[in-house]
Design a binder for these strands. Structure first.
Lengths: 232, 232
DNA sequence: CGCTATGTTGATCCATATCAATAAGTGTGG
DNA sequence: CCACACTTATTGATATGGATCAACATAGCG
């Protein structure tokens, strides 16, 4: 793998503090690959041969059952995904596909496990990452079980707004079709939900979202750090 | 804490392989407490001062938002809970209450973190446990998003049956009220769902469940190792 | 520029929640 | 040990959130 990618990968919390020679030995067995959009990188159920790192582009994690499909998360650069399967040496629970032209680093799972066994600092980082991932999914579950789809959308928009440094107008980061799936609803229902939020000052035009009265939307959405905070 | 509890706690995968002196130093700061039923042990949002271990009885993990409440999981002996919050030193995401008279071991979170920092074997076990927890919640999310409530109930029953070594008749492990909440439905809807499963040979009488034709139920439920397996 | 995928809107259907009433347990104190 | 109170479970009637089906509009894209 070209050394040019090392610095940005090194900035990931997962790899930041570990010993240089261990990092290099991880990189030695890895390789970068460029994928066009809509390529399936992973099929759920497959053995977890590689830890994946998105260096550019974006990746959709999704799951299927009995002919149905749902979007579980979107991975943006620079982040890893399917760490848990790699560590447990267990089958992937989610499938992954590129959403756009993407560059992915593949680190052999056995190398990750090997370094994990000998580098306490790396092990420490893995624990932090896994705990983080765990808490994220718990929040997702709470979101699904405790809120209606309208409430989920409202809170999603507030989160996106925070992401956009609180701007009154911002662009949706993902296409509506997948946003609907991510929020656990149909595209038709999402369309109607957007309209339903007009009562709270939300205007949507294509991918442009305008929130005229954040306070008002918050009164409805009732965001909670125990559901909507992705950092803690 | 009385040494009499050490052996059973030691049998937990989390503590099994760690150094004896580290284990003892964890136990030194810990204490056991007996709680009556329906006592709130943890309130979500509180700082995570202790890692909890259920030694006897059982504990319900639940969450609330905007006046609504949902059961997230039931913890049976001997298991730990809220490990992720302990490790991250972050607020609890779930509340916990005893379901019956229960004996709980409380291990100060800072001790857990301290030993975790110096004992690579313990760190290893924590990673395994967290990865496991993460995968469990991912499965829960898939279950919620990809299945109807009737399908979730059918698969839940098949899982319970497996737990009962495949017996055609077994008892429900938790009360229906909380089962409904756990499965993401109302008690009324659960009652009707049980009836709906009669078409697939399921008979329920009080807490007794009888599955006359497992094959038939499986044809409907379509269990998947990527959703219903709690071991991998 | 036209094709194809995505998004919107309306009509309808279905799953699930809610409300209300009753029945069946369960536990407590006399 | 029973009677009472209280919680849990069931059943029916109804409301509603959300899905589905269908038609059309729109926007990317080759």
């Amino acid at each position: 793998m070209p050394r040019s990618h090392f610095p940005e990968i090194r900035t990931l919390e997962l790899f930041q503090a570990m010993q240089e020679d261990h990092f290099l030995s991880l990189m030695r067995g890895s390789y970068v690959q460029n994928f066009p959009p809509q390529i399936e990188l992973i099929n759920e159920g497959d053995p977890s041969d590689f830890l994946h790192i998105v260096v550019s582009g974006s990746v959709d994690l999704f799951s299927t059952w009995n002919g149905r499909e749902t979007s579980m998360a979107t991975v943006h650069p620079v982040s890893t995904f399917i760490l848990a399967a790699t560590i447990k040496d267990a089958p992937y629970l989610m499938s992954a596909r590129t959403l756009e032209k993407s560059r992915i680093v593949l680190v052999p799972s056995q190398d990750v496990r090997a370094v994990f066994d000998i580098d306490p600092v790396f092990a420490h980082a893995i624990v932090a990452e896994l705990a983080q991932c765990y808490r994220s999914v718990v929040k997702t579950t709470k979101n699904l079980k405790l809120r209606t789809s309208l409430e989920r959308l409202a809170n999603y928009l507030l989160r996106q707004q925070t992401h956009a440094e609180g701007a009154a107008e911002f662009d949706l980061a993902i296409e509506k079709r997948r946003l609907a799936s991510f929020l656990g609803m149909t595209p038709e229902n999402l369309s109607r939900a957007f309209k339903g939020l007009r009562a709270y000052g939300v205007e949507v035009e294509g991918i442009k979202v305008h929130i005229s009265d954040q306070q008002d939307l918050e009164r409805f959405a009732k965001p909670s750090s125990l559901i909507d905070d992705y950092s803690t």
